[in-house]
Design a binder for these strands. Structure first.
Lengths: 241, 241
DNA sequence: CAAAATCCTTGATCTGGATCAAATCGCCTC
DNA sequence: GAGGCGATTTGATCCAGATCAAGGATTTTG
């Protein structure tokens, strides 16, 4: 009877995984069955509304997350209120690569978000026992590093038009990977969020977008949608690289 | 006789490691004896003069490096010649965390540099066999990511004075870790290099440094040395964070 | 050690994007 | 569907840092 109960619970945990929106794209996809069960057993699924904070800068780093649905934004604050948006995470992305003892950035939901949360300690234990998982995290860390370096170049050396064009293409590409249409971007964040990502002001972002629209390079749809009418032009203005 | 020769070579490889300037700080420091020998056996030590390129953007990613002496600079170029300096590596740092099939950035020596180079394939094999090494790389990747995010904030949201002050403190801290004096920074790079790191021009960097000197916050020494006369003031102007 | 080449500094001017200031647009809420 | 509130757009003005332009300082080369 006791054994039967345990069995049933374990099955239901994996059941949860099978219904997960990020089953095949999250870090879990590299785990063999017994390890997946181990992870599933300590997982908590949580949903957030747009605007909710998943993490505050300075929160103790005692959990790691999979984003299993929706889009979140990472950001840092300076003492006087200036904000830098560091990046965005999508369905399938992992959140929890950080050296220190607490989170060095805040994380906010931009859409309805579902996350799958694991306590750091058992996650770390599984990590040490499962080289394949460690390998996967290293690969994702390398990708994030590459993407951060690309963004450094944008912030350090690109003009406003180049920044906004790069941004639109970047979001569309990321969304295409989780099921979006290729020449369409959905922008759930505000102009201010974009500005804080791109090192610009709200007004400048708005002006550049208006100008791209006026030149028929993009078309604005309802609910923050953007259609690329002339992607090649967008790519040209994205970079002289 | 044959065995004796092999023995002698192996010993001489490890001999090399024992004399290495980064013996205790490089990724090698986590390797137990047999694995260290494996790595040493496929290592090539190479020296570079200031200005030499270790890697050109687009070079095939077929080797990874330890920097065992000196200081190098990572950078990306845009098509029209604009350059973004991504960061600096010091003695003990590892170079070879990159997702793609080739290097997405160039690497140039700023001082005399010594590196220890490993072909990617045997390095990767050792990595798969040695979870402790993978763990070390993941930890270093996380640190680099944290540092990149800090720099994104600098480029996106800080003023020229804040940028230069942050830079001076950052270099001094990194140098202190590899044996420098605490309130002293050695700047082997040009003002143009600093500008391309900080998203500023040569002239602006020069003006800010002159101004800090005029206010007696720093003192310029010969050979690119900088002494912090009032570190607290430098820290204040580095950030309103 | 002279000359050439860089690099650095300082001054004068210009400008891309910031800041300040209103409308106008959507979108909730009741 | 009226009212309210935040988000967006657009216009006018401003300014931090870029650009343009010379001189000095320092290092390199012959």
């Amino acid at each position: 009877m006791h054994v039967a109960t345990l069995e049933r619970e374990a099955v239901s945990c994996l059941e949860m995984c099978n219904q997960c929106g990020a089953r095949t794209t999250s870090i879990c996809s590299v785990l063999p069955h017994p390890e997946l069960r181990q992870l599933a057993d300590c997982a908590t699924v949580k949903t957030y509304a747009p605007g909710d904070l998943l993490i505050r800068e300075g929160d103790t780093f005692d959990h790691v997350f999979n984003i299993t649905e929706g889009m979140v934004m990472l950001f840092k604050l300076l003492g006087d209120g200036r904000r830098q948006v560091l990046g965005f995470l999508f369905k399938g992305d992992f959140l929890g690569l950080t050296g220190g003892v607490d989170y060095q950035f805040g994380v906010q939901a931009l859409t309805s978000v579902q996350s799958c949360r694991f306590p750091r300690v058992p996650f770390r234990r599984l990590l040490l026992e499962t080289p394949r998982l460690e390998e996967e995290l290293l690969s994702r860390a390398s990708d994030e590093l590459m993407s951060a370096r690309e963004h450094l170049t944008l912030l350090g050396r690109k003009t406003a038009v180049e920044r906004v064009s790069s941004f639109l293409l970047y979001i569309a590409d990321r969304e295409a990977k989780v099921g979006g249409a290729p020449d369409l971007a959905f922008l759930p964040m505000t102009r201010a969020d974009m500005g804080d990502f791109l090192g610009l002001t709200t007004e400048t972002v708005s002006r550049v977008i208006s100008s791209l629209k006026r030149q028929q390079v993009i078309q604005l749809l309802e609910h923050g949608g953007v259609r690329f009418l002339r992607r090649a032009d967008l790519e040209t203005s994205a970079e002289a690289a």
